[in-house]
């Protein structure tokens, strides 16, 4: 890793350079909630001043830009007795993600394992993922964040450069050639010992601010042992089976595919729609049999996929501890509460 220091005003210059050739997606403030706290979301930005580098967790991840909720996979159009096929990966231009927290960068790294690294990579994801430039930004943990428990509080790979606010200057970690070349075009300096000290100080202060924790020690085994636990019924009774937890999750990738024929009967398309394992018909198969008709078995499945199955397959959890699902769940079902109840055998 190469480190640099830049003056604060240089970051806007970097933004301008990046924005001149690509669309930029960054965290913006869209309003206030009922407690007057700001609401942030990822959106396309044209101006540096729109970006809120100090944002707390956005309600939704930047998912619509890399795993759209709905995406047409393929279509055909009849032309007399002939026909045309069209397949589009929906990636017309490179995208710059300006201001991703470490958890969201790690979400990419974990998605990559299954969507790029498996026997059948998903080209729709790959096209977008390979055309990204990622600028990470440091953050202050909020009440729902537990990324540190999930080993996702620092990003070691999967980004181009990472910005940490040292107060008067920015500390820049450079990971890619592209980032290195861009930084040549703005004013940077070598960090001195005092910068390193300041950086370490910020990191250790951040570590002390986490309020939410998940104990992952031996979790895969404990989940196996607690498969029949009554605790799942407790959470299943609360669950609305609304799918919100998967929809706000930066790493949930499940989908369904629907085929539709156009009203003039001249064309048809296959559309992928992101789905959620908590939804009633997630495990319904042809012929109508549903393998998981009860809410509790579906909710349990969510935890087993994220914290057991994925870990066994990829040596990492499919949860980065961003806390979004717990914050968004109207039934107040959060990962730290569920895991601790499973470990303790009681709520």
């Amino acid at each position: 890793m190469i480190f640099r220091i830049i003056k604060k005003e240089e970051l806007e210059k970097l933004f301008e350079l990046l924005a001149s050739g690509s669309r930029v997606i960054g965290p913006v403030e869209t309003g206030h909630d009922r407690n007057s706290d700001p609401i942030y979301e990822f959106s396309e930005v044209s101006n540096f001043s729109e970006i809120r580098l100090d944002h707390t967790m956005t309600k939704l991840p930047a998912k619509k830009y890399f795993l759209p909720y709905k995406e047409d996979l393929a279509a055909f159009h009849m032309k007399g007795r002939d026909w045309d096929k069209s397949v589009d990966y929906h990636c017309d231009s490179p995208s710059v993600f300006f201001g991703l927290h470490a958890c969201d960068i790690n979400a990419f790294n974990r998605l990559d394992k299954v969507l790029l690294g498996s026997s059948y990579p998903m080209p729709y994801y790959a096209a977008k993922r390979k055309n990204m430039f990622i600028v990470g930004v440091d953050c202050v943990p909020g009440p729902y964040c537990f990324c540190r428990s999930m080993g996702a509080d620092t990003a070691l790979q999967g980004f181009d450069l990472f910005v940490t606010d040292l107060g008067k200057t920015y500390f820049i970690e450079i990971l890619s050639d592209t980032a290195f070349n861009f930084l040549k075009r703005i004013k940077t300096s070598e960090p001195v010992e005092a910068d390193h000290v300041r950086y370490m100080d910020i990191v250790s202060k951040k570590n002390m601010k986490f309020e939410a924790h998940v104990d992952t020690t031996d979790l895969t085994k404990i989940l196996d042992m607690e498969f029949q636990s009554d605790i799942w019924k407790y959470w299943g009774d609360k669950c609305l089976a609304c799918g919100t937890c998967a929809n706000v999750c930066p790493t949930c990738y499940c989908y369904s595919v629907e085929e539709t024929v156009s009203l003039d009967l001249q064309s048809a398309k296959k559309t992928r729609q992101l789905y959620s394992c908590n939804i009633i018909d997630f495990a319904e198969v042809s012929g109508g049999h549903n393998f998981r008709p009860e809410r509790q078995t579906r909710l349990k499945y969510r935890y087993y996929h994220k914290h057991r199955g994925f870990v066994e397959a990829y040596e990492d959890s499919l949860c980065v501890g961003c806390g979004r699902c717990g914050e968004a769940c109207l039934a107040d079902i959060t990962v730290p509460k569920v895991i601790s109840s499973v470990r303790g055998g009681a709520v």
Binding site: T30, E41, K59, Y69, C242, T244, N247, V248, A328
Partner: peptide, 21 residues
């Protein structure tokens, strides 16, 4: 669809109305 409106609402990127009171 067998699922509830929340699925579409989240896909449309709306802020949840409960957050807005």
């Amino acid at each position: 669809p067998k699922y509830p409106v929340c699925m579409e609402c989240k896909a449309n990127g709306n802020t949840c109305l409960f957050d807005l009171g």
